[in-house]
Amino acid sequence: MIIAIPSDKDSLDSAVCVSFGRAPFYCLYNTETEQSTFLANSAADSPGGAGIKAAQLLVDNKANIVITIRCGENAAKVLEPADITLFKALNLSVADNIAAHKQDKLEPLKEVHAGYHNGH
């Protein structure tokens, strides 16, 4: 299984990024091999639709689980039909969130916000 976590920096001790779509990196953690890699987010610089493009990136990278602080409505619409489960990140590092997930300590992410996109 692959867990994806938006992160501020490309290291396990990085904080989880407050933004899902505009996070600079995603940590991709493989639960079988216990290996983690960091993926630069090509959607971060999109003026619009960043959440959709970021979600597509995670779908294309075969993520099964996303641990995030929040998630926009459009990104959720892409992640859900791809059978990706969303969990609410704790205010801890990426590594600590992976550990918390292993111990079943994370809550499912319930509130998905509308991502109104006005202007260009």
């Binding site: 959607a43 999109s46 959709i52 979600a55 597509q56 779908v59 619409k77 892409v78 039909p81």
Partner: peptide
Amino acid sequence: NALALIGKRLM
């Protein structure tokens, strides 16, 4: 970024 593809399903 108005389009997304999951498998063969275009959104």
